[in-house]
Amino acid sequence: MFSKACEYGIRASIFIASKSAKGIRVGIKDVAKEIDSPEPFTAKIMQILTKNKIIHSAKGVGGGFEVSNEIQKSIKLIQIVDAIDGDRIYKGCGIGLKECSEEHPCPVHDDFKKIRGLLFEMLTQTTLEQLASGVKSGDFFLKTLNTNN
């Protein structure tokens, strides 16, 4: 549903927020490892998130990425999605047509319209703090556990 960059951006934001809540800044290597993303690709995503004021980057010794508790409370999931993918996921056509409307609907228009509405609602109501607190508590995970020993 989301682009790979957006998936990584969401996971990176959640990981950084969960660490920031404990007063820990994280480096790009740690972020890439935790979200299972190539480091150069992760760096590009972090630039986007930093530019859009979702993540804060501190340079130098003791630097790294962080998200203040106040920002975590105010950042909605839709801001991360918009920063990386734009609004096509909750405004565009379900099968990618350039023009799809009530007057000229695509074959999945009516069903996809409902799904888009629910997705938009979830994106606008979910905060970064909510997602990070679930990871911190151990209720949610950012990567699968390797069961092969």
Rank of each mutant, 00 (worst) to 15 (best):
S101V: 04
V108K: 12
K136P: 09
P105D: 10
E121R: 12
I10D: 02
G62A: 10
D110I: 13
L119Y: 11
G138F: 14
G62K: 12
L118C: 15
S57R: 00
E7T: 01
G94E: 08
L145I: 15
K59I: 05
G92H: 06
S13H: 00
D139G: 10
V26T: 02
F65K: 01
S74Y: 10
D87V: 06
P40R: 04
C100V: 15
R11G: 07
E129W: 02
G63I: 05
S20F: 06
P38Y: 07
D110P: 11
D110A: 13
R88G: 12
Q72G: 04
T50L: 02
G9F: 00
L77I: 13
Q47C: 02
I14V: 07
I28K: 03
R116A: 06
S20A: 09
S13P: 05
D87E: 13
K44A: 07
G27P: 05
F41D: 01
M1S: 07
S74H: 08
E7R: 04
E34I: 13
A12G: 01
K73N: 13
Q79T: 07
L128N: 02
K29I: 11
G94H: 08
T147F: 12
S101P: 08
P107I: 15
S133N: 13
G138H: 15
K4R: 02
F41G: 02
G27T: 08
E121Y: 13
S57H: 06
K73M: 06
S3W: 02
A12K: 01
F120Q: 10
D110W: 14
Q47N: 07
I78R: 13
G134D: 07
C6N: 03
I84D: 00
I48A: 01
H104D: 13
R25Y: 05
A132H: 06
G86Y: 10
D30W: 03
K29P: 03
K136S: 15
E129G: 05
P38Q: 09
V26S: 09
N52E: 12
G23K: 14
V81N: 04
F41E: 00
P38V: 04
I95A: 11
K113E: 14
M122G: 07
K143N: 05
S18N: 02
K53L: 03
R11S: 04
S37P: 00
K53Q: 06
L118E: 15
S68I: 09
C100E: 04
F141N: 14
G60D: 08
G23D: 12
K98R: 14
I55Q: 01
S133M: 10
K113L: 12
S133K: 12
T42E: 04
Y90Q: 02
E66M: 10
R25I: 11
I10V: 13
G9H: 00
R11W: 00
N146W: 11
G94R: 09
G64P: 01
T147H: 11
I24T: 09
I55H: 00
Q130F: 08
I10M: 05
N52Y: 10
